[in-house]
Design a protein around this nucleic acid. Sequence first.
DNA 1: GATGAATGAGCCTTCATTCAT
DNA 2: TATGAATGAAGGCTCATTCAT
Lengths: 206, 206, 206, 206
Amino acid sequence: MDSNSSYAKDDKLRRIMDAALTTFSRSGYQGATMQEVASEAGVGKGTIYLYFCSKEELLETVLLDVLKRYRDQIVQIISSEDASRTRMRRLVSEVVRGADRRRRQFRFLLQGSWGMGGEFKQRALSIKKDIMNSLAEFVSEGAEMGEFRDVDARLMAHIISGTLDSLAAAQLWNDEQTLEGQDDSWADDLAGAVVDCLCSGVEPEQ
Amino acid sequence: MDSNSSYAKDDKLRRIMDAALTTFSRSGYQGATMQEVASEAGVGKGTIYLYFCSKEELLETVLLDVLKRYRDQIVQIISSEDASRTRMRRLVSEVVRGADRRRRQFRFLLQGSWGMGGEFKQRALSIKKDIMNSLAEFVSEGAEMGEFRDVDARLMAHIISGTLDSLAAAQLWNDEQTLEGQDDSWADDLAGAVVDCLCSGVEPEQ
Amino acid sequence: MDSNSSYAKDDKLRRIMDAALTTFSRSGYQGATMQEVASEAGVGKGTIYLYFCSKEELLETVLLDVLKRYRDQIVQIISSEDASRTRMRRLVSEVVRGADRRRRQFRFLLQGSWGMGGEFKQRALSIKKDIMNSLAEFVSEGAEMGEFRDVDARLMAHIISGTLDSLAAAQLWNDEQTLEGQDDSWADDLAGAVVDCLCSGVEPEQ
Amino acid sequence: MDSNSSYAKDDKLRRIMDAALTTFSRSGYQGATMQEVASEAGVGKGTIYLYFCSKEELLETVLLDVLKRYRDQIVQIISSEDASRTRMRRLVSEVVRGADRRRRQFRFLLQGSWGMGGEFKQRALSIKKDIMNSLAEFVSEGAEMGEFRDVDARLMAHIISGTLDSLAAAQLWNDEQTLEGQDDSWADDLAGAVVDCLCSGVEPEQ
DNA sequence: GATGAATGAGCCTTCATTCAT
DNA sequence: TATGAATGAAGGCTCATTCAT
């Protein structure tokens, strides 16, 4: 019984955050109404205010939550013991696959934290920097291990991050020209080609 | 007199669109009020409705306008007769410089068209595809001329576009770690390093 | 035309304040809704916010306005050149008559400024003190002229003010036992009896 | 056990009514929330509804309770066997002292029953009339005993009642000009002066 | 054309009340 | 009996839009 009610409470919070993610993603922050979120979550409008003190706090919490999960996914992938190129490949394929599976979340990430203010922006930026730092470190370590050239790690992090975002966005925007064959291996094939570009560059070796 | 009033009319339209860009960029679409836009433009609130039938149409017009200008800038740069690497370099340096100079516009571009619907989204996507197509064509042509390897042009377009976006965003977010030395040549140096990564890749030649 | 529109604006403000007085008096501050006030005034809900920035400011303005008019009435009456007793008599009869005529306003005055905070309370208190000071001065002057005994003027002011309030309240509460015969002279007769009590006291002369 | 739980129940009821008095007095009827009252009483929000079926009933009960206690105090004082003037003096001094000691209650009384409707208003009025009747009777009896002149008893009741209210209000409003020396005997001195005014009147004997 | 006073639909938020535990 | 999580009606306020001037 105890564990039941405890479960129920967590469940309600989770349902609200999930509904908020869905609703904000569908209608945008300002466009979404608390009533929509409540209906989507299957709770009363007032119930949301038992967990979040304002619409803004709800958005911030959900946004940070998604951002953190994205960061954790990236960090986890590039922390493996595989060869740098392999890790990079997994990074691309997982993110692209994830964008497909969790469209709602990526909508959110790409939208970013526009219009949010002050303290929140700092926290969001902090997580974004985590991501950048992880990627930069990944590049540096690759160079130390002799698997990468000695390029500017921070710039390379921008290139990787930007590529991931662009691919995910294409996914969301349904860029069927780029990503049409959705069989089992399309993400891996895509990742292979992208990583080839990133690793070998676009210029022919002389 | 005719040409005068016509000029006056164009001028007023231009001031309104400029004010809208500034205001939407500062406060977001929903956060901005028509009163704000009117004040910023130095016209009466009702005047805006002589040129645009709704707030949404105003946003769409301004957004498409900015997108087009961005597209045109990119197209113009990569249409020159220079070597591919040189054009790519100019692409990066101009975009980064532009992000610095025209922050309002880039805010807008990165924010995208959230919450906008249907027909408008198609038009925005269409322009975004113009950009992608231009970049892909640029890569293809480079390959034909032997200046680029025979990589997947569309994927390389994503890499370039994503890199540009990531750099521009860092600019806006004031990522002072990446872009601190703001002397005259910082953009060129940055572009050089970025293009080196993109052209030669991150892996050492064997 | 100019004077017309100017009149219209003043008229709208006046209608809103009047409607607010009526509505607040009928339903209480918290009980009244802005929609009620708007309907009573025959304007749109938003229009009120062109003249007052919040419900609270509306209440404060109306309350201070009524308070000031009450103060001015009292000051005017006791500033005449008549004998002290005559002025006191007019004070009572006018206030009682006013309570009858302007019930809404007296409701307001008696309710006072409960729940209002800070700066406003100070301004209301300041006007209430004006009234007390005027009454005290009236008593002092009466004493100087030999028409009154040398009693504590401030205490006597409390007695007069309290008596006026109690009579006005009885009026409002429909104390038909006290104030039933509402012919032309009832107020004068009442005032005569009251002033007799206040002037000669309740104890028999020894 | 029975008497214990019965005691506990009475105790809880008392605590709730006390908390309501404090809370309503502090925040006003509409401003106070049931949660505030519950917290102040140290009980759960739902518990209040075991004793009162609505917020309004709670207010009415508490208000009538306070009114009755005030009435009883007045009746008790003027029912003694002392000389009329002595009783009047005790009336003033006790009320003023009481206003100091039980500010919360007087706040309530002075605030009155604004916004309350129908049946309740009748009951409150009924108690207020009790007070008026008691005072009028007191004056009549004084006249019968030859200690008072034969004035209109109901009007004199208004004068006394109004004076008491005005003094109590000054107390609450912190009218330090009137009531500053708060040593042991200030209330008695004040009462002496007030009663002198009421008994002998403000006009010099001729 | 240009304006801004006026409007009212719509939304965030509060809080009295209920009811499962 | 006692509780407080859950609810949803209701209200203050905003702001896109209109229209008389």
